[in-house]
Design a binder for these strands. Structure first.
Lengths: 184, 184
DNA sequence: TTCTGTCAATACGCTCCCGTATGGTTGACC
DNA sequence: GGTCAACCATACGGGAGCGTATTGACAGAA
């Protein structure tokens, strides 16, 4: 019975995440999204009470699939060193538009808690990963900080230089650099 | 004769940079700034043709004092290793709200060229610095990339965790970590 | 077939911001 | 003390979003 409801709600959330990726939190706006979806606000306010409810739902979706999903898939790899390489490849290659958009809105009351949880979770995971690879705990925490920072920053620098996504060769060199730098 | 003109113009630019720091590019808005300055739009549109003209002027100011100013001051320090430490201290301690706001608006037509120039300039400077400290050129470029990325990212992570600015001790540990990591 | 719940369109008022037009104020200088 | 330019206030029209209220379409159950 609530089949079609859920479907349509999901379409709004999907569109919200798209808009978030290329226009930031401010682009998660009812009327523009309605236009993009080929409907009017009349639809939106049936599925959601608020603009903020949509944003919250989208962030929830993002949190579930993005962080936890990735970590679970990584945990299937046995060798920690290999896991780091995999992580680097996945993360460096990935599109971080949404993540960056959220960081840009770190003060937003709806965004802040999600971003905080996600960041903490990832840092903790990375530190554990480095520790398993032989780095002592305290050092691992600091390096996880540095490493995740580098990850975030690299994307932003690339955007600032509006560099095209790195070639396979550049990616390999960078991953090697990261492994050499952070795992020794 | 155009004394008072320039002064008032500067006040607008100053306010624009403040607004940029804590509200992003979107917050560089005429009417809110006018309110904050205790005047009305009537004033603004005498000094500037456009909202965009204000933004451009503010970015110009930022580019001049921020990047070139910092580099010139750093160049007075002789020892490269010392320069890196100084850079780390200055940069890690600094408030990067404006820089982050600009990265968040990397697609904005007025922001993009400024951000691009600044980023390139800083990367180039950092690479030269690492090179002078004994790192071979190609490696220096990659590490400069990583290092500047880490710089950007550390700030964002701190914001995401809404951590207070790091204590003196933490700052020291981090700087040591950075020197150890990137200079060997 | 009628009724009911689900979903969407239309129309409205509100707020915030932009940019323009126009008139006032002030101060320097003759 | 009148003039002119610099500077600012007031008042307007317009666009983009938000959220509400009301009505309409349509499908499935009774």
């Amino acid at each position: 019975m609530p089949q079609k409801t859920r479907l349509s709600r999901e379409r709004w959330i999907e569109a919200a995440l798209d808009a978030l990726a290329d226009g930031g939190v401010a682009a998660v706006a009812v009327e523009p999204l309605a236009t993009r979806l080929g409907v009017t606000k009349g639809s939106f306010y049936w599925h959601f009470h608020d603009r903020d409810e949509l944003l919250a739902a989208a962030l929830d979706e993002w949190e579930q699939t993005g962080t936890e999903g990735l970590i679970e898939r990584l945990d299937e790899i046995a060798d920690p060193r290999e896991r780091l390489a995999k992580w680097a490849r996945r993360v460096l290659g990935a599109d971080k538009a949404q993540l960056t958009a959220l960081h840009a809105a770190a003060d937003h009351p709806t965004v802040a808690p999600v971003l905080r949880r996600t960041t903490e979770r990832r840092l903790q995971y990375l530190a554990a990963l480095l520790h398993e690879a032989g780095v002592p705990p305290a050092t691992a925490r600091r390096r996880a900080h540095l490493l995740y920072s580098a990850d975030l920053g690299l994307y932003q620098i690339a955007r600032a230089l509006d560099a095209q996504s790195p070639t396979e060769r550049e990616l390999r060199a960078l991953i090697r650099e990261i492994c050499d730098t952070f795992l020794r």
